[in-house]
Simulated assay, not measured.
Amino acid sequence: MTGELPDKYTVAAAVEGRLTLSDLQMDPATLAHQAVVAEEHGNPQLAENFLRAAELALMDGEEVMALYEALRPYRSTAAELEALRVSLHTRGATRCGALVEQAAVVYARRGLLR
């Protein structure tokens, strides 16, 4: 990987509508590599974020937005967050599932559940 972008990835191409969403999506392998680099440079929190992003990169945009909406304060019940956690774990998005589980605990403690 050279770090250089192909000529098709230009501002003009974006403005003219010649880029599609798939042109702009991150590859999970690239995100996993970035996690390794972050870990090697002493930033485990950033590494974990990259690994969660790698899981999200395998989902479609609507699923990601539904996850975002569910994690907003007062949007979900404890049962709904638990169902979301189970769904994520079942689909192999274990890091995202763990984040939902952590959020549910904090939301319950702070009174942020619906």
Rank of each mutant, 00 (worst) to 15 (best):
M1W: 09
G3V: 11
G3M: 12
E4G: 07
L5Y: 08
L5V: 07
D7W: 01
V11A: 13
V11L: 14
A12G: 09
A13T: 06
A13Y: 11
E16V: 08
R18W: 12
L21M: 12
S22T: 14
D23V: 03
D23H: 11
L24D: 04
Q25K: 13
T30Q: 10
L31H: 09
L31I: 12
A32H: 10
A32M: 10
A32C: 06
A38R: 07
E39T: 04
H41D: 02
G42I: 04
N43Y: 07
Q45K: 13
L46Q: 09
L46R: 11
N49W: 06
F50Y: 14
R52A: 11
A54C: 12
M59Q: 05
D60K: 03
A66G: 04
L67G: 04
L67S: 05
R72Y: 08
R75C: 07
R75M: 14
S76I: 06
T77F: 12
A78R: 14
L81F: 07
E82M: 10
L88S: 00
H89I: 03
H89D: 15
T90Q: 15
R91C: 01
A93L: 14
T94V: 12
G97K: 00
G97D: 02
A98I: 03
Q102C: 02
A104W: 01
V106Q: 12
Y107F: 13
R109W: 02
G111V: 00
